[in-house]
Design a protein around this nucleic acid. Structure first.
Lengths: 225, 225
DNA sequence: CAATTAGTGGAACGGCTGCTCCACTTACCT
DNA sequence: AGGTAAGTGGAGCAGCCGTTCCACTAATTG
């Protein structure tokens, strides 16, 4: 049943063809899901998504029987972009520069899409389509790290497990600061990159202002929206 | 109605005279809350706390009318310990060592108590008792940073707003890794401290093992337990 | 232009939440 | 001991949630 997960470009023409209006609704649901996930994160009510898509809840559930199906569908493109980032970083003639750009892009993607941040750090063994893309990216990453180390720019004790570690840390900052100081993560990253290079201190992005900090913490006090 | 609530007999026993069994129940609720908050974080059901305390929900709500009252009560001690950490760090003859110990302790407190992690990073303007303690700590922290900078060990562009930034990052790591790799945060902190000192790379704690990483991400995939 | 289904929306269900109400119980004071 | 108000527990309310069901609608096909 769940064997085929359509690539977003080619709507369902590969295996089953949905009725025209059904396919249109499917796309509307995905658009709404992407929109809401990006704004509010992954744990948003099903009703809310259906409402925003302008369809009944039943339609959503028939098309995406489980929550994971919906998530996989919504983030398929972005997951592909993610693995492309890895490939591009690998293609960079300067491995260290490639590494830095890679990390920066990843963190930026987290910062720009709250749902995607959750996908990257939280929902690992989700639908097969995502997992496959993830594995391809992981392999490319290993190569990237090897080269940066061989070039003598990346510290040799940097582990590939440190990448999700960075992502988790970044997620913490990003979810906390999104509304009041959406660029706060850059400062964390500035600190981290520096220690990955094991070089002397370089200029950092500006720290949070006092009011940014205040508003960040205010906002977070009412989690259960 | 009447202004005075207490009879003139024993007006001030800590400002509040509850009936003996009421006071005992109050303590039972606080104990249960501390226990559950530490395990499951701040957003745990009121019923669950009452059940674990062995009292009815009404008892809980009469004693702690709002959620914030309960949180403030449960974490009063720990918040005091937190401000003491700052004071102790300030008393350290070596300001840089004091700074490092301070950061380490803070992150450890987050790692050991999921609820407290939330209190520190998420619920800022909560009950006054907590806020007051927080301010005292903030002032001591400013002094600590000044001294460490004056000693030439802490980089001069370190901002006091970077401390919550660290805490947010640490929270991200800690909430993600608590079950599978409860010491993962130490590695992040190792990286960070290094870049705060702007010195050459030093040995780091071990990275996550492959299985630790896997189990971490597995666990997180089913958030709505 | 029917006839045939795939497709639809929204009501409804069961389970959870924070919180309140009220008939009872029990500690305290004399 | 006995009166009384403080204190109690749990049923119950309103409001969410994910999910299912089913009477209806309309795209497709011949």
């Amino acid at each position: 049943m769940t064997e085929e997960i359509c690539h977003s470009k080619e709507p369902a023409r590969g295996g089953r063809n949905l009725r025209a209006d059904a396919e249109r609704n499917r796309e509307r649901v995905l658009d709404a899901a992407r929109e809401v996930f990006a704004e509010q994160g992954l744990d948003v009510s099903t009703n809310e998504i259906a409402r925003r898509a302008g369809v009944g809840v039943a339609t959503l559930f028939r098309r995406f029987p489980s929550r994971e199906d919906l998530i996989a569908g919504a983030f398929a493109e972005k997951m592909h972009a993610y693995s492309e980032v890895t490939a591009k970083a690998l293609a960079d003639p300067d491995p260290w520069h490639g590494f830095c750009v890679y990390i920066e892009r990843l963190c930026r993607m987290q910062a720009e899409d709250r749902g995607f941040a959750d996908v990257l750090t939280m929902t690992f063994p989700t639908a097969k389509a995502l997992e496959e893309e993830r594995n391809r990216a992981a392999n490319a990453l290993t190569d990237l790290l090897e080269r940066a180390k061989a070039a003598g720019r990346l510290r040799s004790d940097f582990a590939h497990q440190d990448v999700p570690l960075i992502l988790m840390a970044n997620a913490g900052v990003v979810t906390a600061t999104r509304d009041a100081a959406p660029d706060a993560w850059r400062r964390l990253l500035g600190y981290l990159i520096q220690s990955f290079a094991a070089e002397v201190a370089q200029p950092l992005p500006d720290p949070l202002t006092k009011t940014q900090l205040y508003r960040t913490l205010i906002r977070l006090s009412r989690r259960p929206h």
